[in-house]
């Protein structure tokens, strides 16, 4: 559905994307990476907001460079900073966006707007001005506008940033439901969001694809490389500097550390079941001080 071949991009002397090669099929595709890895640039390129300099991208069989207009007809996008005019109501925003997406028949538009409002559970607040929406409601409105016109490709950039836990869970459920019959590219640095619903994941690091595979494969990278070590609390600071500690907790006067390493850091280190976060951290370890 989305085929990216040798995609590169640079701003001045700064290379933000380097020879990206990715293939994405229907379902939820997770895009992970530290800040500045090039996730947003890649997504903006897929949304036709950034021109392609080198490489080739095909979406739903259309060449992005030549047939951007055809791709935009099949696209839904929720940007990282979803900002809409606060003086309009949620319903007005959706009508406006529906018109832009080419839903010109008023009856069709009414139906679709009502449907997406229902989908995101905003029907009761549809006639409220957007400036009065909470952060969660605004994100849901963002999703509602993105799914107008039933797009085949949905791109969501950092959708759960700033949401409270309840909103986040509701949002994940919604995304999960929508991913049944379309490709959703979910970009985030919140690993649990991807772990919860994605089958495929790619990790971008310094503009390159550092990992591309299933969530399980990413997790497996850390197999036999995660350890639990218990040390006196007084030595906590010292070990933080020498080992790659990803988590810690205090038990009485002892500190229990989760450590990543190819070998057990101490002889009594206990091997642990790896998580996706461990696999991600190993992938981007070269510049991440975990």
């Amino acid at each position: 559905m989305v085929v990216i071949e040798e995609l590169s991009k640079q701003y001045g002397s700064l290379r933000v994307l380097r020879n990206i090669n990715l293939t994405m099929e229907t379902g939820l595709f997770g895009l992970l990476g530290p800040n500045g890895a090039g996730k947003t640039t890649l997504l903006r390129t897929l949304c036709t907001l950034e021109p392609i300099e080198r490489g080739r991208v095909s979406i739903c069989g259309f060449d992005l460079k030549q047939e951007g207009h055809a791709i935009r007809k099949r696209l839904g996008y929720l940007p990282q900073h979803f900002q809409v005019p606060g003086s309009l109501t949620g319903e007005e925003i959706l009508h406006y966006m529906a018109t832009l997406k080419g839903i010109k028949n008023k009856q069709d538009r009414n139906k679709q707007v009502a449907r997406v409002l229902e989908e995101v559970n905003l029907t009761a607040k549809a006639r409220q001005k957007v400036r009065k929406y909470s952060g969660g409601m605004l994100r849901r409105l963002g999703i509602a506008q993105a799914i107008l016109g039933n797009p085949s490709l949905l791109i969501v950039d950092e959708p759960t940033a700033g949401l409270d836990p309840t909103e986040r869970i509701r949002f994940r459920t919604l995304i999960d439901r929508l991913s049944k019959d379309r490709l959703i590219i979910l970009s985030t640095h919140i690993i649990s969001d991807i772990e919860a619903g994605c089958e495929q994941v790619a990790v971008l690091h310094r503009g390159s694809v550092a990992f591309n595979g299933s969530v399980a494969d990413l997790r497996n990278i850390a197999t036999n490389r995660v350890w639990e070590v218990t040390v006196p609390f007084t030595e906590y600071e010292k070990h933080l500097r020498t080992w790659k500690v990803t988590a810690s907790r205090q038990e009485k006067n002892m500190a229990v550390l989760r450590v990543i390493g190819d070998k057990p850091p101490v002889s009594n280190a206990k091997p642990l079941e790896p998580g996706m976060e461990d696999g991600y951290l190993i992938t981007v370890k070269s510049d991440t001080d975990y």
Partner: peptide, 14 residues
């Protein structure tokens, strides 16, 4: 440059 305009640009509007 506005965020909303950028969003509009992802729609099929010419």
């Amino acid at each position: 440059l506005s965020e909303f305009s950028q969003l509009m640009m992802t729609s099929p509007i010419s």
